[in-house]
Design a protein around this nucleic acid. Structure first.
Lengths: 216, 216
DNA sequence: CGGCCAGTTGACTGATCATTCAAGTGGGCG
DNA sequence: CGCCCACTTGAATGATCAGTCAACTGGCCG
């Protein structure tokens, strides 16, 4: 219940999440980290063989947090599966706003920052992307026949991630949320065309589309 | 004509372009750079006040190279403006293939790597994005009425960049060109729907769409 | 009580970092 | 010839880097 400082290991991981997000992995020195977490170097190396292993723990923490810390708040009060896709994007928009467009997706940043082959790190980056994409994929499946039958839902889910990452990158570079909004607007345009296409196809096949009110 | 080593300044910029792309800015040490360019430290600091100014020169070199080194080769033999959009994306696909999916857009990587406010650097990153987007914008304008009249062409052009950046990021992370192809396929789907929508609208307004062969 | 050991402490190491600078070198020009 | 100055040379600098280690603390259990 209390807000006491948690155990050292957790404190290190939490601090590392913050600093890696703000300054990047390479530009965060171990000394920065130790100072911010109020930990001595020996303790760090007691829990982690090296800086990179701390990064692995950070990536696992992000992975574990996707559902409870990202999706759940973003989707609270949003039932429609398609709107959930855009509600998630709205969460990133909010992150941009509150950081004056300095926000960058920590996973995406690390994905571009790390240049060694680094198999274990890359695997966990991929796992984070996959978990994100899977969540969107479930929304798209829940949308059922509202999307064209032949549409590859997995591919579209990945495309939503593509859009988010690219949009955040541009908004950050231009220091302008408008860039993010513009990208989301285009994605919305794509979705609307997919939805109306499925709606038309549904009608001509005699199946009344679920939510059309006035078939004028 | 000769392939002689060019002057020191140029050699530094060219080498820096390569190393920054391969290893990132922060992870490229001045010592690496000096060795690769076969230059002594004094010479570097004779031409550039510091490492960051070399980065500025690199970003200007990228900007200057967009037309002759990126767009022109990508568009050689491709006349159709819409196909030019995808021809440019195919160039990035090729870069992924030849690097076994280790390629990252150097501008995008720097955009996420740099975390200081760093106004002059950020401005040049933005200028690079803008130049890229402008080129796509011209294609979309050249497509004229083949795209819906009310479509914001500038926004769609930026969305193409969004897609490219996000797609390269994922392909690199998953070490799989298929991720890139999937994103391009979705963008193609969006474009096809935009084109057919404009085509239908054009017909109903009595204007025969330019290239339809059999209005079955 | 006594021994053990997970966890802590912080000074220390050697490597590497970006940058400096004094001493050059050589080509052009008066 | 003789000066000048753009450019080069590379050793040296001090800061900072990730990582080490031996000594210490305190809680638990036999």
């Amino acid at each position: 219940m209390s807000v006491q400082t948690p155990n050292t290991r957790t404190r290190l991981v939490v601090t590392a999440m913050q600093l890696f997000r703000e300054k990047g992995y390479g530009s965060t020195s171990v000394a920065d980290l130790l100072q911010a977490a109020r930990v001595n170097s020996g303790s760090l190396y007691h829990f982690f063989p090296g800086k990179q292993d701390l990064l692995l723990a950070v990536l696992e923490a992000y992975h574990a947090g996707i559902q409870p810390l990202l999706l759940e708040p973003a989707w609270r009060g949003v039932a429609d599966p398609i709107e959930r896709v855009f509600a998630l994007l709205a969460t990133y928009r909010q992150a941009l706003v509150t950081t004056e467009c300095q926000y960058a997706c920590p996973i995406g940043s690390l994905a571009l920052e790390l240049h060694e082959p680094d198999l274990p790190v890359r695997e966990r980056l991929a796992a984070n992307f996959s978990a994100w994409t899977d969540a969107i994929h479930q929304c798209l499946q829940a949308a059922g026949a509202r999307l064209p039958r032949e549409l590859d839902r997995r591919e579209l889910a990945a495309f939503v991630l593509t859009t988010m990452e690219g949009a955040v990158m541009q908004a950050r570079t231009f220091r302008d949320v408008g860039s993010f909004d513009a990208a989301v607007r285009q994605l919305r345009g794509y979705f609307e065309r997919l939805l109306s296409e499925a709606s038309r196809a549904g009608k001509s096949r005699g199946r009344a589309p679920a939510k059309r009110k006035e078939p004028r």
